[in-house]
Structures are given as C-alpha cells and as structure tokens.
Design a protein around this nucleic acid. Sequence first.
DNA 1: AGATCAACCAAGCAAGCGCTAGTGTAAACC
DNA 2: GGTTTACACTAGCGCTTGCTTGGTTGATCT
Lengths: 201, 201
Amino acid sequence: MNVVNESPRRKELTRLAAQLFVQEGFDRTTVRMLAHEMGIKSGSLFHHFRDKQEILAAVIEEGTQNALHIARRALDSCDSTPEARLHAMARAHLETLLTDRNAHVVALYEWRRLDPEARDHLIHLRDAYEALWEQVIDEALAAGLIHGDRFLVSRFVMGALNWTVRWYDPAGPRTPEELAGELIGMITAPRAVAATPSTIV
Amino acid sequence: MNVVNESPRRKELTRLAAQLFVQEGFDRTTVRMLAHEMGIKSGSLFHHFRDKQEILAAVIEEGTQNALHIARRALDSCDSTPEARLHAMARAHLETLLTDRNAHVVALYEWRRLDPEARDHLIHLRDAYEALWEQVIDEALAAGLIHGDRFLVSRFVMGALNWTVRWYDPAGPRTPEELAGELIGMITAPRAVAATPSTIV
DNA sequence: AGATCAACCAAGCAAGCGCTAGTGTAAACC
DNA sequence: GGTTTACACTAGCGCTTGCTTGGTTGATCT
C-alpha cells in the first residue's frame, strides 16, 4: 500500500519531521506526533514512509546531500589559493548548519539510531563530504599554511565546526563568514614572519 | 521505600547504566534492561533510584565531577607557563574522555533528556569546568600564545576536543598526550623564534 | 464512463513501557 | 531478642508505542 518515491509531499513531510526530531529527539517523537504536525492521522503516515526508521534516513540524507552540493559550489566559485579554499569550505559548512540546521542536528545526534542498512548507504554520502575537506586540508598543509598531522587536523577542524550547533545563535552578532575567518585565523600560522615583528598586545 | 543516598552499590549501578546508555541510548534503554545488566529484577531498581531520570542524572554528575577533579589536579601539578597549562588542560580532558568514556558520551548525547531540575543542578558543575578552560585560554591570549576572540577560541577548542569521542580509538597508536600536543601546536602561533625552540616531539 | 491511483481516515492489535504494591529475608542495631 | 533497615522479589496496572487493516475520497487518465 505504501510508496517509497520522491514526491514533493514527502519532501515537505521530511522537513517537518526534522524539526520535530530536533525538538524531541528521534525516540521520543511518536508517529502520532509526526502525523499531527503534518496535519494527517498516524495511519496515513505509512503511505509515505515504510516505517519510522525511513523518516529518519530521509531527514539525514536530505541534509547531507545539501551540504555536499553547497560545499562543491563554494569550492568552484572561490579563489584557488589554499587559504581561500579553506575559508570557503568553513563558511559553506557553517552556512549549511544555519540554513539546514534541523537536518544537521539530527544527523549529528541521531546517527546511531539508523539501522545498519540505512547507515551503510548514508556513510558513503558522508565520506564524500569529508573527502572534500581532507583534500582542501592537504593543499593547505602542502602550502605550509597549517602544520600537523593530516588526519588529526581535519578531525579537529570538523569537531570545532560541528560543535557550533551547540552554541551558535544565528540571531547573534556574528555571521558565518566571520566565524569561518576566526577559525581559519586560529589555525593558520602567520605565514611570513619576515616583515613587522608580530606585536604583543 | 526507596532511597537517594550515595551507597557504593549505587555507584556500581551508575557505572553499568552509563555503559548501557552509550550502547542503546537513554530512551531505548528500558528499566528491565538496566535491571538485567545489574543482576536484579526491574522492580528492585527503584530501591536505588527514584525513577529512570535519576539514573541519567547520576551518570552525568559522576562523569562531570571526575572531569573537574582531574582538570584541577592537572593544573595544580604542571608548569605555570601558559603553554604548559593549556597543554595540561587538553591532556586532562582527553584522558577523562578515555578513562570515563561512557559517562561523557552520555553527557554529550543525552543532556537534553534531563528534566529541568536535574539540568539546573548539573549546569553549574559544567560551568565550573568550562570556567577553568576560559581562564587558561585568557592567560594564553594575554601571553600572545594564541590570538582571536576569547569566546570563540574556547568554543572551537572544546568542540575539537569533544568531537574526539567520535573517532578516537584508545587502542590506536596515539596517546592523549600526543593528541593534546597536536591540538595545542595547531592553534598556537610559533611564538618568539628567538631562543631554543622548545620542541614537543 | 469506467478504471486507476495517490492520499487519507477510523479502529484497533500486540507488545512493551515506567512504575507501584505488597511481601520475604538476612544482616545490623538497641 | 525484638525491631529496624537494606535489598531483593513477584505480579501486574494503566498507558503508549509502532504499525496494520480495510475502506473512502476526489482527481486524473483512457
């Protein structure tokens, strides 16, 4: 009776589900709550999704696909210097967290609630995204812009960025652009120390 | 009938609960699973804890108290240079994540499942811990060891460290000591190129 | 005009949930 | 030696859970 297609209605339902999953957590969100939020009865939900698990998978897939597209576009349309590319990736990441916040919070917090099949599928998407990061970080390392272990640097940077969902307030004074600048500034060595002696304020 | 004291039996139960909460998540962990893991029947559980919520609060409190003690001891017994203090805090944090991993994963993932009263109490503990960090970071900023916004730097550093629970493998080749060194090395500008470069190999 | 189909609903099942009530028992205390 | 206390048990209540079933509706297609 149920369908697994990509109807526009399903997309809208996925967006609403993401919001509820963030508010309540996946386990505490009942199918009745989901249905109510969508303006239908709980039984009707299973016309659009095979089961509750599939809703979670849909939310996370949507968010990760978006992040991947935005990151690729950001890399395509920025300067080719290692610093510019690093900055572009950080800003893209933060902007995704902002515009698509719900889906990403769900991906970060509820990843472990996915059943193995869904996880297998989504892990490839995530790997593709993280590969972009490692590539940009490799370039920065090769250019001497940052130092350290390739693996560790990328993990530390991703951690710092993902942690922002805990404290960043989009209504606050700081733009994603500024945040990205601060982070990149923090980890990049002041390249040529040659000129003015770095002032100690 | 039930008690709320600090018996040693209760501590052991708390440790077991932390493990189950990590494996299954708080919501999916039933009181019957908890009781089974503890070798008793589900009814007996409520002799030690008022309700399921209290078990979660006990787990998180235990972990945070430990982190606080370890951090304070680390600061007391290290050199007083800003760099040494920064390093000591990072290492202490990573060691806590290692030795008390379950409790901290629960604190990070299940914080929002706490009811308001428990959260109010635990938030003071967490604030005390984060205050230590901000103090050390202030010193490092004042010494010119790192630059940037005080608030942002501490958030970025905490993010990078807490994210380690996702990928760090205690059985792997890297010690917490090395990890701390890499992170501090990444964010500290190569200070005065003057004297002997105090190498941290 | 008849057939198809997506989208919904009302009703409810079987299982599992947190938690309570009342009881038993061995050790500790006065 | 009687009372209390700590810890465990059995049994089950009242409720919620994810999901199924069988059926209705209105639009679209042929």
